[in-house]
Design a protein around this nucleic acid. Sequence first.
DNA 1: ACATCCCCTTAGCC
DNA 2: AGGCTAAGGGGAT
Length: 308
Amino acid sequence: MEIRLDPSVTPLDLNHTLGCGQVFRWAREGDWWYGVAGGKALKIGLFGDRLRFQASPTGGDTSHFVGRYFRLDDDLPLIASEINRDEHIDAALQAFHGLRIVRQEPWECLVSYACATYKNIPAVKGMIHSLSRRFGERITLEGRPFHAFPRPEDLAGADPKELRECGLGFRAGRILEIAGLVAEGEFDPEGLRGADCEAARRRLMSLPGVGPKVADCVLLFSLDRLDAFPVDIWVRRIVLESYPDHFEQSFIEKVLNRKSITPGEYREIGSFARRYFGRYAGYAQEYLYHYKRSSKTISISLSRPSDY
DNA sequence: ACATCCCCTTAGCC
DNA sequence: AGGCTAAGGGGAT
């Protein structure tokens, strides 16, 4: 199957989009990306203006799913023009033309970013991969095994020891607790979509292992809150170093010299970003984040997992 | 080889 | 409010 994309209207770059660190379930093989999303194994590639893909199991409207997943409904040229306020973000926008925020499933996104606490991206990928292989439904695509992300009830009934064996460490108990609440219907990640943004954020932060940063990631990457602005160690540095005129000098020194930031400092950086970049601040975050990291990171994983 | 630091942070304590 | 610390383990330096 394929979708035609006019690059001037709907720019898309799969390498930037799937490789920027926002999703943990994709791997590139030559011209194709293989991954799992929405309970399906997917193979996808962009050839000129043709976005080609294949899904397993077949059934359902895959084109519709792909369009939603890659947020092809976002007017990226408009978004880029709105957030392009200065030379820093302009450089990032040019370098990663076609990078899109993807629309993940809230449940998977919540668990993924709760696992990402104090872990680097390769490690998070390893955790999500292990969890899926052990607890997720097995799917076959082109004769190769893939694994859906586990359902809440799959994890809720797990032995904490098993979760730790997936590399979760101290996160195991938190994930187990979250899974229990979701499986019992006491917490509905999908239902947050209809809630007021601040209320959704508070709800998320009521969960164990979910602080401001994780909550903002879930809002941005799965709940369509494109003004959410997750502030991690990289974004903190980027914002304070690139936009020093918008903060007190003492604030910059204090925040850059410490390992962690207080909730008040987190709020100050986020509210600056929303004021400065506007309603698509989350897109600005992702471009700046990827731009800064790609210049410092040379590592490209050459490992080929035997399955997903 | 080996030590050390870092990691898309949070929670719990003071 | 805000400062401090601990928490797997793997990868980078």
